[in-house]
Structures are given as C-alpha cells and as structure tokens.
C-alpha cells in the first residue's frame, strides 16, 4: 500500500477526518489549523476539482514544510480564479509568470533558496494539464532532467478549461471538447497514443512520481508530504474533475474522481527512481459506463446513436491499466 491506512475507525481513513483518530493520524484537511492556502472568495466554478485539489495539495505541503513554502503557478484556471486584481486567494508566497514556464520559474526559486542557504524552504510548481503536458512540457522535462529541487503538481482536468474546453494531450479518447466535437464517424477525441506524463516523468528516473485524485485525500496528503521531504525533482499528477468542462453536476466532482480510480481509468500509483513502488488498489470495481454516463462530454457514446464499440475501447484502456499496474487485490481476478 502506498500509505498505511487506518484499518477501522468507523470510517478508517476514507473520510477527511474522524473524531476517533489520534491527532497524528488525522488529515491536514481535518484540522482547524490547516493553512487554507487558497482562501475563500476565489472565483472557481461551483464544485471545482482543481480549487479543491490545490488546497488539498498545498495545505499538505504547507503542513509538511512548517509553512516554509513558495509556489510558482502556470497560467490557467487556477491562476485566473485565484488572483484577479485586486484580490488574491493565495496565503502562501506565490508567483505566476507564464503558461509554459512554471517548472523553470520554480527552478529559479529553488536556486535562489539554495544560494541563500534557505534549505528549509520547499518549492512547488503547479499547473493544469495544458500547462504541464503541452506548453510547459519542455520546461518540465528540463527541470526533471536536472533533478532540480522542485515538486511539480499537475492538476489534470483533461482539457484547456480556462480558454473554453479545448483538447489537450491529456484529453481522453472520445471526449467532447470544443476542438474535438462529437460529430462524424469517430465522434469526440481520437484514440491516440496518449501522453502519459507520469510515465514520462518516471522515464527521467527522478526520485519521486505519483498519481492521485481528489477522491483519495489521505493518499494524496501522504504523497505530498512524502514528496516535500525528498530532495530533487518530484512530480505529482493529480486528477481533478471539472464540472464545467465535463458537463457533470457540481456535486459529482469527488464521485467522478473516485469512479475514475475505481474503474481503472485513472491508475493511482507511486514510483521512485523510475520504478513503481505501490499502487492504490481498486476497492469496488465498476464498469467504465458508471464513470462515463454522468459526464456530458461522453453523452454521444450513449442514447439513441450509441457507440458501444467506443465504450468497449475505453473499457479496454481501463482493463489495460488494471493489468499493467495490478490494480485489483490478489484473487480479485
């Protein structure tokens, strides 16, 4: 297991907190003292997974670094909804430079901290999937390759949401976006080879790579805390549903993240120096339809002009993840 779950306390470690747990077993989010790195009043949409994921992640990093944290941010929703003049939501030192350079800016900050002997200060860079897997990819790879002392967190909502839901290299096959419309014989996004940035990060042999979702808070906090304590380049790919871009209900954000993991569509694992060291097992496996149906971006796969063959191909992707990462408990299969 990636982290040591509390086996049984009514809810174990599934809930955010639990009055029955010892203080050191509680999540950062359960604490009244959590830093609320992103303050109330931000302009994210209702039910925004990215706003939630960013607070989860940065609060955990703040807790682990004793508040000694600096964040660099790529352009994107997270930047726009958090810092429109004259108000900022951030309660950590934070800089936004450009869409494609957050990893490099963070490298610069880390270099400055090193040269000033501030070894206690930890540096986080963050961006959406567009800023990470597409336009910022060169800087990201450079940061990895140099093994700069930066924790990069990608908030993956699988398209360019800030600009109006266009396809990114993280958009899943068949998904409707403004640039992959559900028309023609193969509606929605194409079945490409995909750009699996966590695996590409692993190919850099950096000390730490992990995936996580907003539905598995304890796992996420464990990974962020672990990552904060490692020196060198670290990458966390955090799955954050987007109600606006996915056409899902605002209250379904966490549920969809959970279904992405439980279907096998989004494998949750961690890797050290290029090798997978743990996976978060599927707890209650469900077919891919349960994940797809609540999302309007997949609506063309169902209903009157259904595409069961495309659903089957998506299921095959999930099944491949399950095999590849061993996502089912021993004997489940």
């Amino acid at each position: 297991m990636s982290f040591q779950p509390v086996k049984f306390y009514q809810t174990g470690t599934f809930t955010v907190g639990n009055r029955l747990l010892a203080p050191d077993e509680r999540s950062v989010q359960a604490s009244e003292m959590r830093s609320n790195s992103i303050n109330s009043g931000h302009r994210a949409c209702q039910g925004c997974g990215e706003a939630l994921g960013a607070r989860y992640a940065i609060d955990a990093a703040m807790a682990e670094s004793n508040g000694q944290l600096i964040a660099a941010n790529a352009t994107g929703c997270l930047e726009v909804f958090s810092t429109p003049y004259p108000e900022s939501s951030w309660q950590v030192p934070w800089i936004h430079s450009l869409f494609g350079n957050a990893p490099a800016v963070a490298t610069g900050i880390a270099a400055a901290m090193k040269v000033k002997g501030r070894h206690d200060v930890r540096v986080v860079a963050q961006g959406g999937d567009g800023g990470t897997t597409d336009i910022g990819f060169g800087c990201l790879s450079g940061m990895f390759e140099r093994n700069d002392d930066v924790l990069y967190i990608c908030y993956d909502n699988e398209a360019y949401m800030n600009t109006g839901v266009q396809r990114s290299s993280a958009t899943p096959p068949t998904a409707r976006t403004a640039t992959t419309m559900p028309v023609g014989p193969e509606p929605g996004n194409v079945f490409g080879q995909g750009k699996n940035v966590p695996e590409i990060a692993m190919a850099h042999n950096i000390p730490y790579v992990a995936t996580a979702t907003v539905a598995d808070l304890r796992d996420l906090e464990y990974k962020v805390r672990k990552a904060v304590n490692i020196r060198g380049a670290r990458y966390i790919h955090l799955f954050v549903p987007c109600p606006l871009g996915w056409g899902s209900a605002s209250h379904d954000t966490i549920r969809l993240a959970r279904l992405a993991k439980e279907t096998g569509m989004f494998p949750v694992f961690e890797a050290e120096h290029g090798e997978v060291t743990s996976v978060l097992k599927i707890r209650r496996q469900v077919p891919i339809e349960e994940y797809l149906k609540p999302q309007k971006r997949f609506a063309h796969l169902f209903g009157k002009h259904a595409h069961p063959e495309l659903v089957a191909r998506l299921q095959a992707i999930a099944d491949r993840h399950i095999r590849k990462y061993g996502l089912l408990e021993e004997g489940d299969n």
Binding site: I95, G108, A112
Partner: peptide
C-alpha cells in the same frame, strides 16, 4: 525560454 524563466523565479525570490 527556460533561461529567462529561471531568472524570473530566482529574481522574484
């Protein structure tokens, strides 16, 4: 692009 970006980060820090 990274050169200037790193400098942006380090200068801001």
């Amino acid at each position: 692009f990274a050169a200037m970006s790193v400098a942006i980060g380090s200068s801001a820090a």
